[in-house]
């Protein structure tokens, strides 16, 4: 019987909590409707397509290829990123560069975003700091799989 009364007390306490949330949030909504600006808001919702959350500086977003001064990609086709990639989404075809300082350049550099898991290992592996994931673009959805294959032009641009 005492246990039962304890349950009853907890039931009332639970409805008191939800009731408090309702009243407090309705109070801030009413203030908003009346045009009074308050520091606290009635809801924690971020209404996504219109409002966007600030992305953290270390957030891993869409890849980009860094370029040299003359516009060519900084990549030397060492294949380290292709080796380290756990989802095997990078494909590189190396070619000989005429510049003896560079020696190799990527003829093809393809990232298949439909396979990429955004782990960032390629960025850590790169000795030339050629690939980075700091564009801040997170809306990379596409209607076809071909649109998700990023080649050198799209990565540099």
């Amino acid at each position: 019987m005492i246990k039962l009364l304890g349950y009853f007390f907890e039931i009332i306490r639970g409805s008191w909590i939800t009731c408090r949330h309702f009243v407090v949030n309705m109070w801030f909504y009413t203030l908003k409707v009346l045009g009074i600006r308050t520091k606290r808001k009635g809801a924690v919702t971020i209404q996504y397509p219109e409002e966007k959350k600030e992305i953290a500086p270390r957030h891993r977003s869409l890849h980009r290829m860094m370029t040299r001064e003359d516009g060519r990609p900084r990549c030397v086709a060492c294949l380290l990123c292709m080796t380290v990639c756990p989802s095997e989404c990078i494909y590189i075809e190396a070619a000989e560069d005429l510049d003896p300082e560079v020696q190799k350049y990527p003829r093809k550099f393809i990232i298949d975003l439909s396979r990429c898991c955004f782990c960032g290992f390629c960025v850590e592996a790169c000795p030339e700091d050629a690939i980075r994931m700091d564009t801040g673009k997170i809306e990379v959805a596409a209607y076809s799989r071909e649109d998700l294959i990023y080649d050198l032009d799209r990565l540099c641009g």
């Binding site: 939800t18 949330h21 309702f22 949030n25 809801a43 924690v44």
Partner: peptide, 10 residues
């Protein structure tokens, strides 16, 4: 709406 207000949503 009421469930949203209770759970701090819109």
């Amino acid at each position: 709406k009421e469930s949203a207000v209770i759970q701090d949503r819109i």
